[in-house]
Computed example of a mutant assay.
Amino acid sequence: MTDYKSILITGGGSGIGRAVAQRFSRGGWFVGLADIDEAGMAETGALLPDGTWSAHKLDVRDPEQWERALKDFHDACGGRIDVLANNAGVPLGGRLVDLTTEEIDRTLDINLTGVIYGARAAYPYLKEAGPGSCLVNTCSAAGLYGQGGMTIYCASKMGVRALTESLDIEWAPDGIRVTDVMPSYIDTPLLAQSSHAGSNKPIRDSVSNAGLEFTPVEDVAETFWRAVHGDKLHNPIGKTARKIATAARWMPSYIRRKSRELASSGLKPMG
């Protein structure tokens, strides 16, 4: 067994995953990068000290690839996986009737089913490393209250929230902490994409036009660090996410009205 801790991060080739890798590396952790983008993982790895990271090609939609990636990381890090960061995800906006079956299936498969597969596959490793091991899921402010124009994305992230809450109960006897982070709009390369196949407008433009803030990706990484070392179940990030969390709990009629206004402005998915 190792004397240092280790974390496997899906979506580690860019964006939030890259920032989380850098944050945990600074904290002295051994970092595993998991992604379908091998070039991206190499770029992330180049930002980390030599000998403190490993890369594992992974399509989170494939249970067999999950088993292989976790086994390989377990060997690479010296025999103990302390944290799985279930971070890989894709954006999807647009009215439900405008989305293709392929877009719907891909979003649910990556954002929700992939997270479920990862949790199931990681369980024996986290149990072995416990007590004190942790599963941290990337949820979203979209998991706090449904939003028009992002139905499937919200459904996927609300599923991640429910998974987090359920496993927090299921895995407590095994000494495994379960938590999630809930970003709103993060300035990563994903925002350069259009919201869905029928649109050519970048998500970043929609966010800017709505007057909402972008949360620095470094803030998200710091929240991951606090989530792993703290005791909160849900961790909203940024002003927008915190407002939604408060309104969803105490002022549901207000958030319903504001959500309709945002939908009419053409705003696309968050987190």
Rank of each mutant, 00 (worst) to 15 (best):
D72A: 15
L144T: 03
L191C: 02
V90W: 00
W53F: 15
N87L: 10
D3Q: 10
L262T: 09
A263Y: 08
K268L: 12
L135N: 10
K57F: 07
D187G: 11
I81F: 08
Q22V: 08
K258I: 14
I255V: 14
Y4A: 12
P124S: 09
K239V: 08
D219H: 08
D98C: 03
S156D: 05
I104W: 00
P131N: 02
V97I: 13
G27H: 15
K5Q: 15
D231N: 15
W250Y: 14
A248T: 08
K258V: 10
R95W: 07
E128I: 01
Y125K: 03
V160D: 03
G11Q: 10
E102H: 06
S140M: 06
Q193V: 05
L163N: 11
G114D: 00
N87G: 05
A172P: 00
A39F: 09
G266A: 09
A39Y: 02
T107Y: 10
P49V: 01
P173S: 06
L233P: 05
P236V: 04
A197M: 04
N200M: 04
P49H: 06
G230E: 12
G148Q: 09
V60L: 13
L190C: 00
M182A: 12
G146C: 04
I110E: 00
P63F: 12
G148T: 10
A162P: 03
Y153T: 08
I36M: 14
A85P: 05
L262P: 08
V220E: 00
E170I: 11
E213C: 07
G93W: 08
S265A: 12
F224G: 07
L112W: 02
A76F: 01
R61L: 10
I16Y: 05
C134P: 00
E103A: 12
L47F: 03
Y125H: 12
L48S: 08
R68I: 15
A76H: 06
N111A: 11
I81D: 14
M270S: 12
S184W: 00
T188C: 09
S25M: 00
L92A: 04
D205M: 00
D62Q: 10
L126V: 04
H234V: 07
A162L: 12
L47W: 01
N137S: 13
A210L: 06
A19W: 02
D37W: 13
M1W: 04
D109M: 13
G114L: 01
I186Y: 02
D187R: 15
D168Q: 13
E218T: 14
P202E: 02
A19S: 10
M158E: 00
P131A: 04
T2M: 11
L112I: 12
A76N: 12
P183Q: 14
I186W: 09
D231V: 06
R256E: 11
A263T: 13
D59T: 02
L233M: 13
E222S: 14
T138K: 04
G40C: 09
L8F: 09
Q65C: 05
H196E: 04
L135I: 02
K201P: 01
I169Q: 10
I237G: 04
V31H: 08
K243A: 15
L48W: 01
E222I: 01
L92E: 03
Q65L: 10
